[in-house]
Amino acid sequence: MKKFYAAMVGFGLAAAMAVAQPVKAEDVLRIGVEGAYPPFSWKEADGTLKGFDIEIAEALCDKMGRQCELIEQDWDGIIPALLAKKYDAIIASMSITPERKKRVDFSNKYYNTPAKFVAHKDADYEPTPEGMAGKTVGVQRGTIHQCYMEKVFPDTDLQFYATQEEIFLDLAAGRIDAQISDSIQALEGFLETDDGVDYAFLGGDQFDLECHGEGAGIAVRKGEEELIAALNTAIQAIREDGTYKAINDKYFDFDIYGVESGS
């Protein structure tokens, strides 16, 4: 009798696993995106998400053979929401930095572009700590740019914003003297638009390894090694088979991946 029960339990477990297994494999991978960071990620008037990050996310899901769901989240809460399991990965142009690595793990980079200042084209000051002293600079809260400004430009007044779009609004309105952000984002999201005609980059690339990190990667919760490995393989695969180039060329006229990473 005992054997019978054991067999029943065993059978039941096996049946349950047989049912559970394919469901798990098809488990939807939920991806957090920002949706307010053109050309990497923005929302069309009809509510659909568009942009480089979005297409990269879709291409990676395709390569991993997983169904994905994109979930929009404000930048402010994008890491806390990942930790709270609202989604499983962040594909939102997030730079791989030491400070963030304390909270989350990262895939390899999927692109790397430099940060630059943007100011009125008639600006007559240098983008140095001395030249920017007393100027008001707009910065998106919780970005590599906040880290960089606080570290390297201690005498500059910072104004913090929730989104990059609000910064460009206030720059165009003349409320801030300058802003610092990703150069590609500033170019396509502002300088090449109607609002940005009177504005230009102020100086060259701004870089500090501790703040800017190694480029933008995909963030996942700590300890998800399988997911990281799958993402890294997928990133490499889309680099090799031309999918990356096809997406890249839709948005940019040069390869934004940067130097091939060693790892």
Binding site: W75, D76, G77, I79, P80, A81, L83, A84, E99, R100, R103, V104, G138, R141, G142, Q146, Q159, F160, Y161, A162, D170
Partner: peptide, 22 residues
């Protein structure tokens, strides 16, 4: 705090975003 003023909530938001806290 939504128009860049560092009020009490603004201070909280800066702290949250600086250390990625909820």
């Amino acid at each position: 705090s939504t128009v860049t003023i560092v009020d009490i909530l603004g201070a909280g938001r800066i702290l949250n975003s600086k250390y990625y806290l909820a």
